[in-house]
Amino acid sequence: MSVTAPGWYLVGAPWDCSALGRGERLAPAALRAAGLSELVPDDAGDVPVVIDDARRDEATGVLALRQTARAARVLADGLDDAAGRRPGRRPLVVGGDCSLLLGVLPWLRRSRDRVGLWFVDGHPDFLDGAASPTGETADMDLALLTGSGPEQLTAPAGVSAPLVAPGDVVLVGHRTRDLDPEAAAEVARVPDTVRRIDAPAVLDAPRACGERAAALLAGVDGGVWLHVDCDVLDPAAMPAVTYPEPGGPGLGQLGDLLAPLLASPRLLGLSIADFRPDLDPDGVHAAALVALLRRLL
C-alpha cells in the first residue's frame, strides 16, 4: 500500500540563479520520479521561473538582477495561485537553489505582516554582490531576505523590507569549525539578532536542537517557513549538491532535527533546495531524500 502525506501539495521551482542551466533545476522532476509524486500526489506542477542572463549588475554585483526580481514575482504569483485552489493545505516547494526563497517569502508576506524562517543550511548565505565570487543570489539569499541588498530583491513591489526580521530567523546547521578565511568572514557578517544553532550542536543533539529552534519562533503569530538546503548534510550522506561542506549531519540526524519543526503548529510550509540530480546518476540520493520526506511528512 502506498503512503501519502495528507494536508500537503507539491510545487516545483526549477530555479537556477547561476544562469548556467546547472543541475538544481532538474530536482523537481527527479524527485517526482523517485517517489515524491506518490508521497504528495496533489501536484501543482512547476512554476516557470527563468534565469539565463549571466551578466552581473554593475551597481550591485548581483548576477541577473532584473531577471531574478522577475522570477521572484513569477514564483510568488504561482504559489498564490496554487494556494488559492488548496485552502488549508501546506506547500512543499522543491527547488532549484536556495534563492527560490526570494519568491516564497514575498508570497507569504502578501497576507501576513510577520513571518519567521527556520533556515537549515550548511552555509549562512550572507554575502553580498561585492563579496560573492559569482554574484549568485544563492550566496546571499539570507542577507537579502533580512533586508541587506538591492531594493529590487529586499523589498518587492507591495511588500516592505525586510521580508523577515533578523530576530525571526533561526539559522541551523551552518559550519563554524575549520573554516577558511572567506567562510569565517561570511559567518561574521550574520547579524547578532539572527538566532543560530550550528552544525556541531546539531551533531551532538539533533532532536533537542529542533525543539530549541521550534521554541525560539513559537511567538511568531504569522507562522514560520521551513527551508532545507541539502548541503546541510555531510557530503558522505549527500554528495549531490553544488557546494558540499564537511561536518554536517547524516540523514537520520537531519530527520531528528526536522521532526519538531514539521510538528510545530506555526509551520507554514517547507522548501527543499540544492539537490543535484546530475550528480546522482543512479538515483540513490534522490531516493534517500524521498525516504526522509516519507518519514517526516
Rank of each mutant, 00 (worst) to 15 (best):
F126L: 14
V3Q: 11
R89L: 13
A5P: 01
G35E: 10
S148R: 13
A5T: 08
P14N: 12
E38D: 13
L79W: 10
L279W: 12
V228S: 01
R73S: 06
R276F: 08
L293K: 12
V241A: 11
T68E: 12
A29P: 01
P6M: 05
P106L: 15
L217N: 03
P87C: 10
A34F: 07
G222S: 04
C209R: 01
R212A: 08
L10K: 10
A286Y: 10
G96V: 13
P48F: 10
T60R: 12
L105M: 14
A165K: 06
A273Y: 06
M238A: 06
L75T: 03
L39D: 07
P6C: 07
F126Y: 15
S264E: 04
D274T: 14
L203V: 06
A44R: 14
L163C: 00
P14K: 14
E186Q: 14
A273Q: 01
A130T: 03
V120D: 04
P106D: 14
V40Q: 11
V120H: 04
D280H: 09
A237G: 01
L226G: 03
A214P: 01
C98K: 02
L171M: 07
A208Q: 11
D16C: 02
Y243K: 08
S160M: 02
D113G: 12
G167H: 05
V62Q: 08
V202N: 13
G173V: 06
A259R: 08
W15L: 15
A199R: 10
G147R: 05
V169I: 03
P156C: 13
A185I: 14
L292W: 01
R25P: 05
L105N: 06
A76L: 04
V49T: 12
P260K: 12
R90Q: 06
A30P: 00
A237M: 03
S160G: 04
L163K: 02
G96R: 14
L254N: 05
L257N: 02
T154P: 03
C98D: 05
L179D: 05
D256A: 11
L10H: 07
F126S: 11
L254C: 05
V241K: 04
A215Y: 08
S264L: 02
L142M: 11
D16L: 05
G12P: 06
V170H: 04
D231R: 03
L289Y: 07
C230R: 00
E58W: 07
R195H: 15
P14S: 07
M140I: 07
P6L: 08
L163W: 04
A240V: 01
W225K: 03
P48T: 10
L262I: 09
G122W: 08
D53V: 02
A184M: 14
G78E: 07
P181M: 15
G219P: 00
P106F: 15
D57G: 05
L270C: 05
A157P: 00
V62K: 13
L144N: 10
A157R: 10
P14M: 09
